[in-house]
C-alpha cells in the first residue's frame, strides 16, 4: 500500500477547507510534552465488555435502545469488535477493543468546517460539542468508525438522570460525539496535582475503560513519558506492537499488542486494504 502511505505523507501538512494549514503532530510539539495514549494488549483482552459499560456510565452515553441497535445508530465510544476465523470445529473468535485512536494525524480534524474537532497539545483529539454543527464530515473521514452522530435527543426517564456525570456534557441531537480519553478525569487529576503543587504521577490518570478492565488489557499512559509502565511495555513488547490500520498514516495514539495464538496459520504481509467497520 505504498500509494496510501504517500497519500498520508502528503496529508501531513494538509490544507483544510477553511484555508488554514493544519499543523502536523511534530509541529504541535508532542515530542516534548504530554501525549496521552493507550496500550491495548490483545493477548489479555477477553472481550468481556466491562470497558464498554464503564464508558457508558462515565460519559453519559444515551441508552442504546433496541431500535437504535437495529438502525445501527447505537453509540459505543469503545466497542469490542468480534471477528470469526475458520469454520467449526476449528472456528476462532477474535476480539479487539476499538475506540478513538486519537490520531496524531487525524483525518477527522482536517475536514471539520468549524474546528469543532481539533488536536490539542496533549495529543488528544478533542470534540467541542458546542461548536459542532453536525456535518458528519469527520465521521465519514474516520477509518476506525468511532465517531457517533446524535440522531435523537437522549432520554433518561426520571430518576435515571440522577446518575448522569456532571463533569460530562449531555449531547443533544445533531452533533457528533466520541471517546475523549475521559478528558474530565485527566482534568480532575491535573487540577488536583496543581492544587497540591506537584506533577501528575505516572499512572494517576485512568479513563473509565482502563480502570475497569479486569485483565489490565487496556493501560492508559503518557506515550512521551519513558518512565510510564505502558511505554516501557510497548518498548519491551516491540515485537508485538502495531497500530490499527497503520497504512493510512494516521499516527494513532493507541498501540495494540498482538494476540498470541500458538496455533495461528499466519500469512505473510496480510496488510491489504479492506472496508472498515460500521
Amino acid at each position: 500500500m505504498s500509494s496510501s502511505a504517500n497519500e498520508a505523507a502528503s496529508r501531513a501538512s494538509a490544507v483544510s477547507s477553511m484555508g488554514q494549514t493544519i499543523p502536523t503532530d511534530a509541529e504541535v510539539g508532542h515530542p516534548e510534552g504530554v501525549r496521552w495514549g493507550m496500550v491495548v494488549d490483545l493477548d489479555r483482552c477477553t472481550g468481556c465488555q466491562a470497558c464498554v459499560v464503564a464508558c457508558q456510565a462515565e460519559n453519559n452515553i444515551a441508552l442504546n435502545e433496541e431500535q437504535r441497535v437495529l438502525e445501527r445508530r447505537a453509540k459505543t465510544w469503545i466497542r469490542i469488535e468480534r471477528y470469526w476465523e475458520g469454520e467449526f470445529p476449528n472456528a476462532k473468535a477474535r476480539f479487539i477493543p476499538v475506540l478513538c485512536q486519537h490520531c496524531g494525524n487525524a483525518p477527522c480534524e482536517t475536514v471539520c468546517p468549524v474546528w469543532a474537532t481539533y488536536h490539542n497539545n496533549e495529543g488528544l483529539n478533542v470534540q467541542v460539542y458546542n461548536r459542532c454543527i453536525g456535518t458528519r464530515f469527520c465521521a465519514n473521514g474516520c477509518p476506525y468508525s468511532v465517531r457517533y452522530f446524535n440522531f435523537w435527543n437522549p432520554e433518561w426517564p426520571e430518576p435515571m438522570n440522577n446518575q448522569l456525570n456532571p463533569d460530562v456534557t449531555v449531547r443533544t441531537k445533531g452533533i457528533i460525539e466520541k471517546c475523549t480519553f475521559c478528558i474530565q478525569r485527566i482534568n480532575r487529576v491535573q487540577v488536583t496535582a496543581k492544587t497540591e503543587g506537584r506533577e501528575i504521577r505516572s499512572g494517576e490518570v485512568q479513563p473509565a475503560c482502563a480502570q475497569s478492565c479486569p485483565t489490565s488489557a487496556l493501560v492508559f499512559c503518557d506515550l512521551n513519558d519513558p518512565e510510564s509502565a505502558p511505554a516501557q511495555l510497548a518498548e519491551a513488547e516491540a515485537g508485538r506492537s502495531y497500530t490499527l490500520l497503520e497504512h493510512f498514516g494516521t499516527d494513532p495514539g493507541i498501540i495494540y499488542l498482538k494476540k498470541v495464538d500458538p496455533h495461528a496459520e499466519l500469512e505473510e504481509d496480510s496488510h491489504a486494504p479492506v472496508e472498515t467497520h460500521a
Binding site: V114, Y129, N130, R131, C132, G134, R171, T172, K173
Partner: peptide, 14 residues
Amino acid sequence: LKQALIVGGATTPL
C-alpha cells in the same frame, strides 16, 4: 458567522 456557530451547537440546535 463562525463565532455565531460556536455558540449554537450543543444546547441550541442551530
